[in-house]
Design a protein around this nucleic acid. Structure first.
Length: 265
DNA sequence: TTATATGTTCTTGT
DNA sequence: TACAAGAACATATA
């Protein structure tokens, strides 16, 4: 799930639940998720800290712990957060549990363990810069978007998913954005015109905002969107034709071959 | 049993 | 050298 809209929904969830609470204790069930820190150090450094505020950049969620320390959470393909009362059943695949001082627990859940948890001693903006991540896809101006995406080589879908060009868009939402833009995901960026890039930028902002509004729940998206029909053989909500599935840049991609022709018309 | 999967990163090839 | 495409990663599910 976790592309930009999902992570933004997690952030808001975090703000409604664990924010401003202090950490009483921590249980790390799987230390492979911890990046550059041992389980022991992680626990001792975080104990007694308070969650002060949250930030998000692309698919990363940052939590301010004070004293210039931030918790950086990345969810990989299967990560999520769950807040529940101590004594209730711990959710399956919980990997790190934060026991809070109000008797609740915040769980970082990950089924396939491809996420990362890190304790950083720089501002999120510096972390983002050091990682070479591009601007956040939700707030990027067309000027920056056009420059970064427009200059890239290769396929438009790969460019949109490249976190170093633009941060936050993954496989599912890139399909949606290109569907709305009526562009084939395999189109070469070099063949696109300025108006195409403008359209992609506009749709990208629109799609991400709408997804956040709908709590990143694919079922709740308008039926004019591709995502609720994102399966092979489903009907295109625009022309009624059949949706195709094809691997593009190694990722399964869904599109309507009629509405999203590969050649310029 | 085997293929598949929303993530990033490493390796390979141009 | 720089960048783009594909493989690898961990592991549950269909």
């Amino acid at each position: 799930m976790p592309e930009l809209p999902d992570v933004e929904v997690y952030r808001r969830y975090f703000n409604r639940t664990a924010l401003h609470k202090s950490i009483k204790d921590i249980e790390v069930k799987s230390s492979d998720l911890l990046e550059r820190i041992s389980k022991k150090n992680f626990i001792s450094s975080l104990k007694k800290s308070r969650f002060i505020r949250t930030k998000r950049h692309g698919k990363y969620l940052f939590v301010d712990l004070g004293k210039n320390r931030w918790l950086s959470l990345h969810f990989g393909m299967t990560g999520e957060l769950k807040y529940f009362k101590e004594g209730n059943e711990t959710p399956k695949y919980s990997k790190v549990l934060f026991f809070l001082d109000n008797g609740y627990i915040l769980s970082y859940i990950s089924r396939r363990k491809l996420g990362k948890i890190e304790l950083i001693d720089v501002k999120p903006s510096d972390f983002v810069r050091d990682k070479g991540l591009g601007p956040d896809a939700l707030s990027v101006s067309y000027k920056k978007f056009g420059k970064r995406i427009g200059r890239s080589k290769g396929k438009i879908k790969s460019a949109l998913m490249n976190q170093k060009l633009l941060s936050g868009i993954g496989n599912i939402y890139s399909d949606e954005i290109l569907f709305k833009s009526r562009l084939n995901p395999a189109r070469d960026v070099s063949g696109l015109e300025k108006r195409d890039l403008k359209r992609i930028h506009r749709n990208s902002t629109k799609v991400l905002k709408k997804a956040i509004e709908k709590k990143a729940d694919p079922e709740k998206l308008p039926s004019s969107y591709l995502i609720p029909h994102r399966e092979k053989g489903a009907h295109c909500p625009f022309c009624g034709g059949k949706i195709s599935k094809k691997k593009i840049s190694g990722r399964p991609s869904y599109f309507c071959p009629k509405c999203q022709k590969n050649r310029r018309t």
